[in-house]
Design a protein around this nucleic acid. Structure first.
Lengths: 166, 166
DNA sequence: AATTTACGTCAGCCTTGTTGACTTTCCAAG
DNA sequence: CTTGGAAAGTCAACAAGGCTGACGTAAATT
């Protein structure tokens, strides 16, 4: 740490300069964060939007389109385009709900799970390297600040999902 | 911290589940991170791309188009579209270099600086709140992990820029 | 003089967001 | 039972902002 962020000073480390560095760190880090999956996806007909859909279907199998809409924060029309191509290509299966036939429950096929694994392996590898380099205490701080940065609604989503809810 | 990331255990806290949570935290936090400026920009003719250009011109006044290209990681055609509208609208001034007349040195006008302030005030307010809620130790960890997550080239950019430099 | 560099621009394409209009299904009130 | 609204999902059309390719010009470099 070049500057005083890590010092033991009490409270007044929140200069505009400190905050600006945090902002830029988010910007550059997010680029790294998405770089590996983007590289895998390029050349296929898919993009980041497909990655996101696949990720959240994987982690909550059987979730509905509406659920996904809330989590991803896009319009249903936008999500639909992505979902349609994934279904057509046999990566995702959309089963009509038996309780409510309006709903589509989403599942990854074997092929979809395979792509999911390739994508998340790449992303996890970077995450793992960063975590290892930074150490457990830094990781805890990282997670704390990220949670504090979310919109309250998204934070609830995030925390709720952690306990494993579809 | 709900799970064991913050514990004092030696090394093996890097389960796939831990990593997945980190990945999702990045996703949700980045949404929050961009939400406030996006809200300000919507309605104007500008978007996130203009925000990024304005931000980096503000922090490195007199920077050239090439510099900006490297930092932002987009093509010149893409950046040019953004820059052209900012210059036309009188938010950015592009002065021909006196040492090297091929270069254009970029500066914010008073009007541009005003928008920059509105945007970064909003973003800093969120950052400040998150920092305050998380505390100094967490902030240090946050920055450490983010830096470790960047591509090496971008990390150099980031660290270089911290010491002040166009 | 020839080449390279920095920048600008035109044209066209792709991904991924948006809104608007529409169907099918469910449910609840009359 | 019917009807009317709400909810889930689909199709169409458009906009922002990435991209590549091709080309032009002025200035610097060799």
């Amino acid at each position: 740490m070049v500057d005083g962020a890590g010092g033991g000073e009490g409270l007044l480390f929140l200069t505009d300069e400190q905050l600006r560095k945090g902002i830029e760190a988010m910007f550059f880090a997010y680029r790294g964060f998405t770089a590996d999956p983007d590289r895998i996806l390029e050349g296929m007909d898919y993009g980041r939007a497909h990655h996101r859909a696949i990720h959240f279907i994987h982690r909550s199998p059987g979730t509905t389109v509406s659920n996904l809409l809330t989590i991803l924060g896009v319009t249903k029309q936008s999500l639909n385009r992505v979902l349609r191509s994934l279904v057509e290509d046999g990566l995702v299966e959309a089963r009509v709900g038996r309780a409510d036939k309006r709903e589509r429950h989403l599942y990854l096929t074997a092929k979809g799970a395979e792509l999911e694994r390739a994508l998340s392996d790449a992303q996890r590898a970077r995450m793992r390297a960063a975590y290892r380099a930074a150490g457990p205490a830094a990781v805890a701080g990282f997670r704390t600040v990220l949670e504090a940065m979310m919109d309250p609604e998204m934070r609830r989503q995030f925390q709720g999902l952690r306990d494993g809810g579809a």
